[in-house]
Design a protein around this nucleic acid. Structure first.
Length: 705
DNA sequence: GAGCACTGC
C-alpha cells in the first residue's frame, strides 16, 4: 500500500492555461429510463431574464444573417449554451422560418434530450400545450401534430425514418443537428443524406451544432464552393461562448500501474482533504465499478473507525444495474455525507448528476470495435480521446467550479487521440446499407460519408444482405423482401426471421422472440443477491437455448398481467419488459401492413417451427461443437465460446447452434444461442451451405458435415 | 468455470 501511495502522492496541475479549465452549461437534464428531471438554475428569474442570460441571445441577428445567406451554418458552442432551445424557438420562428406550414426540426442523439427540451419549453410558457406548436417525435412516442407543430424535436434515427416517407424532407425549412460532434451512427447517416438533399433543395437550411474540434471538418464537408473565393462559400462557422464554471485539471506526475487502485486512493484523498462536494469516478465496466465501490467502502469504514466525522455514500452506476439502484445516485445526501458515484461511460453523456464537484478519470473507456475481415464485433478497453476526457472533466463544473483528477500524466494526455473514432467506422454496416438502399442510394460505396467506413465493412454488409435475399446479385434492393426488411427497426437478420415467420406458422411467437432480443439485461442480478437471482432465472430456462427462454419470460410476463411486483420477485427487468411489449406492438403493426399471416404454434406445442424460423434469419451465424469443448463457426472455422449469460452456459453443450452475435472480450463469445439441427441449415439456406463432401467446394459455400 | 461500454429506429 505504501508503495502505491507514493506514486499517487503528487498531483500536477494542467499547464494548458485557461484552456485547462473546462466549462459546461448549467441547464441540465437528469434521466434514467423514462424519468425526466429538468434542472433550471435560473428558476427564480423571470423567463425574459433567463433568456437574456443565455449567451446566444446577443447573437440573434448574427445567426439570422448567416442562416439567410449560407445553406449550412456550423455553430460551435458547449452543450446547452442555449442553442438548441433559443435558436429554433425564438429566432427562427420569429424570423419567419416556420411560416406557410414549414417546420423547423431539431435532432438529438438521445430520446430523453428530445423530450426534455420540449417539456422544459412548455413548462416555462404558460398556455403552451405539449405537442401543438412545439412537439417531439421519438420511437413509441409521437407528441407532435402534423398540422400545428412548427418546431419539432426528434431523435436523429427518427428523422432518418421520416425520410423513408418523405425523401426530400419537404416540410422542413431548417434542420438543426444537435450534438453532431458525438458522431453517432444515425447523425452520420443524416449528415451524408442531408448533403445530398441540399443539392436538390436550395431552400433547405442546415445548422450543425458541434464542439470546436470538428467545425472545420463539417465546413469542408458541406461547403459547395468550388472556387477559391470565400465569397462563394455555402457554409459558415460561428462560435457561441459558453457560460462556464472553471474546472481545474490535475494529472499524476508519473504513470500509474493500476488505475483501479489509483482511483480508490484518489477518492480517499479528496475525501480527507476537501471540505465538501460529491465525487464522480469514471471506469470502464461493471466489474471495475463494483471493485472500486467495495474498496472505497472498506477504506471509508476504516476511516470512520479512526474518528472521521464526514461519511461516504458510495454508489455504483452502470446500465445493467437494476433501475431502483440506478435512481440512488440522484438522491440527495445530508450535509455530513459525501456522495461518491462510481460509473461507466453512462455518466459521460447519458445521465447528469447534480452536485458533482470532483471528477476522477481513469483514462480508459470500453468501446465497440468491428473487425471487417471476420465480421466480428468486440468490446475493447482503449484509452479515452481528449474530447471524451474534456467531456468527463466538464461533469465537475455544472454547479460551481470543480476539479478533475486524471489518473494519467499530462504527457500521456497529449498523446491521446483528439476524438473518438466515429461509430460508422467501427460498426457492422448491414443495417446502415439496407437503410441507405431503401432511401434510393444505389451506389453505397460512393455515398458521401463524412468519415468513410472501411470498404471491407461495406462488402461484408452487402454479402450478408445478399445471403438474406435483401439485395440481388447486382446489389439492388429486392422487392418486396429487401424493401420490407428495411422498414423494420431491426437488424436485417431479425427482419428476415420475422418476415418468414408466417410460413413457419409461428409469427406470434417470433414477434415475442424478436421483441425480447431488443432488450438488454432482461435478467437482473443485484450484486448482493446473486444466488437468489440465478435460482429465479433458472425457472425460465429451457434446454433449447436463449430464444425460447426469452419467449418463456415474455409469455409469463403477459400471463402475470405485466406486474412489476412479479418482475421484482423473479429478478426481471420490468422497464425492459414493458419496452418489449411496445417493440412487439410496433413489429406486429408492420407484419399486418405487409398482410402477412398471423399464426401461432402454441396449440401444436412443438418448438421446432420457432427454432426453424430463427434459423431462417440467423443461418449465417451457425457453429458446431468442437472436440475441445468450444465451438467453431461453420463459415470460417473461427473458435467461439458460450457466453456466461447464456442459459446454455454450464449445461451439456448442443452439437449445433445458431447465435445472434459474437462479442470479443477475453474470448470470442456467442450471445443469445439456440440449439439447432444441421439439416435445417441445409434445408433453409441451401444457397449458403451445402452438404460436406470429399470434393473441394466453392470458397463461398461452407460445409455442413 | 467464470462475464456483461452506451445509444437509437
Amino acid at each position: 500500500m505504501a508503495a502505491l501511495l507514493s506514486t499517487m502522492k503528487f498531483w500536477k496541475p494542467g499547464t494548458e492555461g485557461p484552456g485547462s479549465s473546462i466549462s459546461e452549461d448549467r441547464q441540465s437534464t437528469t434521466e434514467t429510463a423514462g424519468t425526466t428531471v429538468v434542472y433550471n438554475p435560473y428558476a427564480s428569474l423571470s423567463i425574459e431574464q433567463q433568456r437574456q442570460k443565455l449567451p446566444v441571445f446577443k447573437l440573434r441577428n448574427h445567426i439570422l444573417y448567416l442562416i439567410e445567406n449560407y445553406q449550412t451554418v456550423v455553430i460551435v458552442g458547449e452543450t446547452g449554451c442555449g442553442k438548441s432551445t433559443q435558436i429554433p424557438d425564438r429566432y427562427l420562428a420569429e424570423a419567419g422560418w416556420t411560416a406557410e406550414g414549414k417546420v423547423v426540426g431539431v435532432t438529438q442523439p438521445r430520446r430523453v434530450a428530445a423530450v426534455s427540451v420540449v417539456a422544459g419549453r412548455v413548462a416555462e410558457e404558460r398556455g403552451a400545450v405539449l405537442g401543438h406548436e412545439v412537439g417531439y417525435s421519438i420511437r413509441f412516442d409521437d407528441c407532435s401534430d402534423p398540422q400545428a407543430t412548427r418546431i419539432k424535436f426528434l431523435t436523429d434515427g427518427m428523422l432518418v425514418r421520416e425520410m423513408m416517407a418523405d425523401p426530400l424532407l419537404k416540410k422542413y425549412s431548417v434542420l438543426m443537428l444537435d450534438e453532431a460532434h458525438e458522431r453517432t451512427l444515425y447523425t452520420d447517416i443524416l449528415i451524408g443524406l442531408l448533403k445530398k438533399i441540399q443539392k436538390k433543395r436550395g431552400d433547405l437550411r442546415l445548422i450543425v451544432a458541434s464542439a470546436t474540434l470538428d467545425a472545420e471538418k463539417f465546413k469542408e464537408f458541406f461547403n459547395r464552393n468550388e472556387t477559391n473565393d470565400p465569397i462563394n462559400d455555402t457554409c459558415a462557422i460561428m462560435t457561441i461562448q459558453g457560460r462556464t464554471f472553471p474546472v481545474d485539471i490535475f494529472y499524476t506526475l508519473s504513470p500509474v500501474p493500476d488505475y483501479v487502485k489509483a482511483t480508490v486512493e484518489t477518492v480517499m484523498k479528496i475525501h480527507q482533504n476537501e471540505t465538501d462536494g460529491d465525487i464522480l469516478a469514471f471506469l470502464t465496466g461493471q466489474e471495475e465499478v463494483e471493485r472500486v465501490v467495495a474498496m472505497v467502502i472498506e477504506q471509508a469504514r476504516a476511516l470512520s473507525r479512526s474518528g472521521m466525522k464526514k461519511h461516504l455514500r458510495v454508489l455504483p452506476m452502470y446500465a445493467g444495474l437494476p433501475y431502483s439502484e440506478q435512481m440512488k445516485v440522484f438522491e440527495r445526501v445530508s450535509h455530513n455525507v459525501r456522495k461518491v458515484v462510481v460509473a461507466t461511460n453512462i455518466a459521460e453523456t447519458s445521465i447528469t448528476i447534480n452536485g458533482i464537484v470532483f471528477v476522477i478519470d481513469c483514462g480508459f473507456v470500453k468501446l465497440r470495435a468491428y473487425h471487417p475481415e471476420t465480421a466480428i464485433e468486440s468490446l475493447v478497453v482503449v484509452p479515452v480521446s481528449q474530447a471524451s476526457a474534456k467531456q468527463r472533466a466538464g461533469r465537475a463544473g455544472r454547479n460551481r467550479s470543480g476539479k478533475c483528477y486524471r489518473v494519467f500524466t499530462e504527457e500521456d494526455f497529449e498523446k491521446l487521440p483528439s476524438a473518438t473514432v466515429p461509430e460508422m467506422q467501427r460498426s457492422n454496416l448491414a443495417p446502415v446499407i439496407l437503410q441507405l438502399k431503401a432511401l434510393g442510394i444505389d451506389n453505397v460505396l460512393r455515398f458521401s460519408f463524412l468519415s468513410p467506413p472501411p470498404a471491407q465493412s461495406m462488402v461484408q454488409a452487402l454479402e450478408l444482405l445478399y445471403a438474406l435475399g435483401g439485395v440481388d446479385e447486382h446489389c439492388q434492393l429486392t422487392d418486396p423482401l429487401g424493401l420490407r426488411m428495411a422498414e423494420f427497426p431491426l437488424n436485417p437478420m431479425y427482419a428476415k426471421m420475422l418476415l418468414e415467420s408466417g410460413k413457419f406458422g409461428c409469427s406470434e411467437e417470433i414477434l415475442s422472440v424478436a421483441a425480447m432480443m431488443q432488450i438488454q439485461n432482461v435478467f437482473v442480478t443485484p450484486p448482493n443477491q446473486k444466488a437468489q437471482a440465478a435460482q429465479e432465472h433458472r425457472k425460465f430456462a429451457v434446454s433449447e437455448g436463449d430464444h425460447l427462454t426469452m419467449l418463456n419470460v415474455y409469455e409469463a410476463f403477459i400471463k402475470h398481467e405485466k406486474s412489476s411486483q412479479w418482475c421484482q420477485e423473479h429478478f426481471l427487468n420490468y422497464k425492459g419488459l414493458v419496452r418489449a411489449t411496445a417493440v412487439r406492438e410496433q413489429l406486429k403493426r408492420l407484419l399486418s401492413k405487409f398482410k402477412l399471416p398471423k399464426t401461432s404454434s402454441e396449440a401444436v406445442g412443438d418448438p421446432d417451427p420457432v427454432l426453424r424460423c430463427i434459423v431462417s434469419g440467423f443461418f449465417g451465424n451457425a457453429a458446431k461443437l468442437h472436440y475441445t469443448g468450444s465451438y467453431r463457426t461453420i463459415r470460417d472455422d473461427h473458435e467461439l465460446h458460450i457466453h456466461p449469460t447464456s442459459v446454455l452456459y454450464g449445461e451439456k453443450p448442443p452439437q449445433w447452434v445458431v447465435y445472434n452475435e459474437v462479442i470479443q472480450t477475453s474470448r470470442y463469445y456467442m450471445r443469445d444461442i439456440t440449439a439447432v439441427e444441421p439439416s435445417w441449415l441445409l434445408e433453409l439456406a441451401p444457397h449458403f451451405y451445402q452438404q460436406g463432401t470429399h470434393l473441394s467446394l466453392s470458397e463461398k459455400r461452407a460445409r455442413v458435415s
